[in-house]
C-alpha cells in the first residue's frame, strides 16, 4: 500500500505531474516578468495540456506509426522511472547503491527518443532538428556527466541519498564545487533544450524541430515528458548540489526542498532571458573547448581533494 501510494501519488506520478505543471507555469510567469509582461494565469499549463489531448491526432504519411506512438511513451516512462530514484525532500520510492548512474542513463533516453522521432518523420524540418538534437547531445552530455560525477567522487558513493547525507556531514556541493554546479546547470539547459540552447527546436530555423509534424495526444505526451524531465533534472541537481537542509533545520524538509528547486528553476529562466540562441557550431565549440576542459579540471581538483 505504501509502495503503491509512493508510486502513484507521492513522490510518484501525480506529484510529478502537478510539479511539472507548476514548474511550467512558474517558468513562464518568471520569464514574462523579466520581459516586462504579465504572463499566463496558473491554469494555463493544464489548459494547454487538455487542449492538446482533445485535438485530432494527425500523423504525416510516410512516418512510422508504431514508432511515433511508442517514442513519446518511452521518453515519458524513462523520465518517470528516473524519478523513482530521485529523492524528494529525502523521500524516494526506491534507492540502491549506484542509482545516480541509472538516473543519468534514464535521463538520456528522452534525448535519444527525441532524435529518433525526428529520424522517423518525413518532414525536412524534423530530420534537421533530429540531427541537431543528436549533435547537441554530444556537446553537452560529457561536461554534464563529469560535473555530476564529481559530487559522487567526492562523497565516495554513487547513491543519491548518500551524497545528500555526505553533504549533511560537510557542506553544500554548491559551496564545495561551484564550478561543477555551473557546468551542471549549463548541461541541464542543453539537456532540457531550453532557451538559449533550444537549437533542435529553434522556431525561426526548423519550426518546432522533430515535433513539427505531431499533434494531439502524442504532442501532449511529448510536452509532458519534457516538463517532467525539467522537474526531475532540477530535483537531481538540488539533491547533488544543495541537498543538505541543516541551515533550515527547524523547517520541514519538503517545503525547503521545493523552494530550492524553484530557485534553480528561476536560474534556468534567467538564462533563457539573458542570452540569444547559440548556433550549433557555437554550442559544439562551447561544449568541447570550454565546458569539457573545465569539467575535467573540476574533476581532477575533486580527485586531488580526495587524495589529501
Amino acid at each position: 500500500m505504501v509502495i503503491l501510494f509512493r508510486l502513484l501519488v507521492f513522490p510518484g506520478f501525480l506529484f510529478l505531474f502537478f510539479s511539472a505543471m507548476l514548474f511550467d507555469w512558474v517558468d513562464r510567469r518568471v520569464i514574462a516578468r523579466f520581459q516586462e509582461r504579465v504572463g499566463p494565469p496558473w491554469y494555463q499549463p493544464f489548459a494547454d495540456f487538455v487542449k492538446l489531448l482533445a485535438k485530432e491526432d494527425v500523423l504525416s504519411t510516410g512516418a512510422h506509426a508504431t514508432a511515433a506512438s511508442l517514442l513519446p511513451v518511452a521518453a515519458l516512462v524513462a523520465v518517470l522511472t528516473a524519478a523513482l530514484y530521485v529523492p524528494v525532500g529525502g523521500i524516494a520510492v526506491a534507492s540502491f547503491e549506484g542509482d545516480l548512474i541509472l538516473v543519468l542513463f534514464l535521463l538520456s533516453v528522452p534525448a535519444i527518443s527525441y532524435f529518433l522521432v525526428g529520424w522517423i518523420s518525413v518532414g525536412v524540418y524534423s530530420v534537421i532538428g533530429g540531427n541537431r538534437s543528436l549533435l547537441q547531445y554530444f556537446s553537452y552530455e560529457v561536461p554534464f556527466l563529469m560535473a555530476l560525477a564529481a559530487p559522487a567522487a567526492l562523497s565516495g558513493t554513487w547513491s543519491i541519498a548518500r551524497i545528500v547525507a555526505y553533504q549533511g556531514q560537510t557542506s553544500w556541493g554548491l559551496l564545495m564545487q561551484p564550478l561543477g554546479f555551473i557546468l551542471a546547470m549549463i548541461g541541464l539547459v542543453g539537456k532540457l533544450k531550453r532557451d538559449p540552447l533550444d537549437i533542435p527546436k529553434a522556431k525561426s530555423e526548423v519550426i518546432a524541430g522533430p515535433l513539427t509534424e505531431f499533434s494531439g495526444r502524442k504532442l501532449a505526451l511529448w510536452h509532458l515528458a519534457m516538463e517532467m524531465q525539467t522537474v526531475v533534472g532540477i530535483f537531481l541537481l538540488v539533491n547533488l548540489f544543495v541537498g543538505d537542509s541543516r541551515f533550515f533545520g527547524w523547517l520541514p524538509q519538503l517545503p525547503v526542498f521545493g523552494l530550492k528547486a524553484l530557485a534553480l528553476l528561476v536560474l534556468l529562466s534567467m538564462a533563457a532571458v539573458l542570452y540569444a540562441r547559440l548556433r550549433i557550431d557555437q554550442l559544439a565549440d562551447l561544449g568541447w573547448k570550454i565546458l569539457a576542459p573545465l569539467a575535467l579540471l573540476q574533476f581532477v581538483a575533486t580527485l586531488w581533494i580526495i587524495g589529501l
Binding site: R33, F34, Q35, E36, R37, V38, G39, M270, V273, L274
Partner: peptide, 11 residues
C-alpha cells in the same frame, strides 16, 4: 532585468 522587475509589467 532588475529595472524591469522593480517597475512592474507594462502589459
Amino acid at each position: 532585468i532588475w529595472r524591469v522587475l522593480c517597475k512592474g509589467a507594462c502589459t
